[in-house]
């Protein structure tokens, strides 16, 4: 009974939601709007449950004077302060509006001067850890790491002003860079006698180098030549190879979500119900 009823409810709601996609008529038509409100209400109760649980843990810690109880006390005080000023919408003075975004509410001030600085500094702190992660990632230990390094490097250059500046002052730098990289790959592959790859990489590298030299010739004789710029290269990376990888990942995730959803609806996956001892 403790598990059978929830399993039936899951099956019922899951099936109704699937059917609602295919049957755009009453009562299934209502499933989309009414169910989404129902879901929002339950989600609000779930957040209440989370808050309640947080308080239970920290109040117990304070009451029993466990290690670090003073920090738990700060959590409890911060929680209750925000809860009281928010739920009662305590105003700083006479106010006309009643929305939570009203700047004359204590809650707004708490958000502006406490929550927002804490939140954004916490995320900003990650910049330093990302920097150390970059150092580790940017050591091109193998080909895969090199691909990651190159993509990240060009994105960082191409999406900032420095990328535009580099290619404006050094036209043809992208072609020369890739010609060198491809030349290095061809030389590396020649040791393994992969002649097809050597030929292909060498040909593309020579083509890029030749095009750049030809371009310089054209520019020096007063003509115009369109070199590859870093922002253009980044746009191409984003639209083609990056998108290809993203699509492969999205399709993979989608197949995973579908199979997991079916497992849940059919009652094969039951871990969300917890253990039998509850």
């Amino acid at each position: 009974m403790k598990k059978q009823v929830p399993l039936f409810i899951t099956f019922l709601f899951g099936t109704v939601m699937i059917l609602a996609t295919f049957i755009p008529h009453y009562p299934f038509k209502l499933a989309d709007t009414e169910m989404s409100m129902f879901f929002d209400i339950l989600a609000a109760f779930a957040i209440l449950l989370g808050g309640g649980n947080l308080m239970r843990i920290h109040v117990t810690k304070v009451a029993k004077h466990k290690k670090g109880w003073a920090y738990s006390l700060i959590t409890v005080v911060g929680f209750l302060t925000m809860l009281i000023v928010g739920l009662f919408k305590l105003p700083l003075g006479p106010t006309s509006g009643v929305g939570l975004e009203n700047s004359q509410l204590y809650m707004y001030k708490l958000y502006q001067f406490v929550l927002r600085p804490l939140q954004s500094t916490m995320f900003a702190l990650l910049a330093f850890y990302v920097a150390s992660a970059s150092y580790r990632a940017f050591r091109a230990k193998n080909r895969e790491a090199t691909m990651l390094l190159l993509a990240a490097f060009f994105i960082l250059l191409g999406r900032t002003l420095i990328g535009t500046a580099i290619t404006a002052y050094l036209p043809g730098i992208v072609e020369i860079f890739f010609a060198i990289v491809l030349g290095w790959v061809a030389w590396d592959q020649s040791k393994s006698k992969n002649w097809v790859i050597v030929g292909l990489m060498g040909a593309i590298g020579l083509f890029l180098l030749g095009r750049t030299i030809y371009g310089y010739g054209v520019v020096l004789t007063g003509g115009e030549m369109e070199f590859i710029t870093i922002p253009k290269l980044v746009n191409w990376i984003m639209i083609y190879p990056q998108m290809a990888g993203q699509r492969a990942i999205m399709i993979g995730i989608c197949l995973g979500v579908i199979s997991m959803s079916l497992r849940i609806i059919l009652g094969v996956e039951r871990s969300y119900l917890g253990s039998d001892t509850e």
């Binding site: 609000a44 808050g51 959590t75 209750l80 925000m82 928010g86 939570l100 929550l115």
Partner: peptide, 22 residues
């Protein structure tokens, strides 16, 4: 700061969902 962040942000989302959904 971390403890305060936990308490204040939890209450903030409770307040928001209470007014918006409940």
């Amino acid at each position: 700061a971390e403890s305060l962040f936990i308490g204040v942000s939890a209450a903030y989302y409770i307040v928001y969902s209470t007014w918006n959904a409940l």
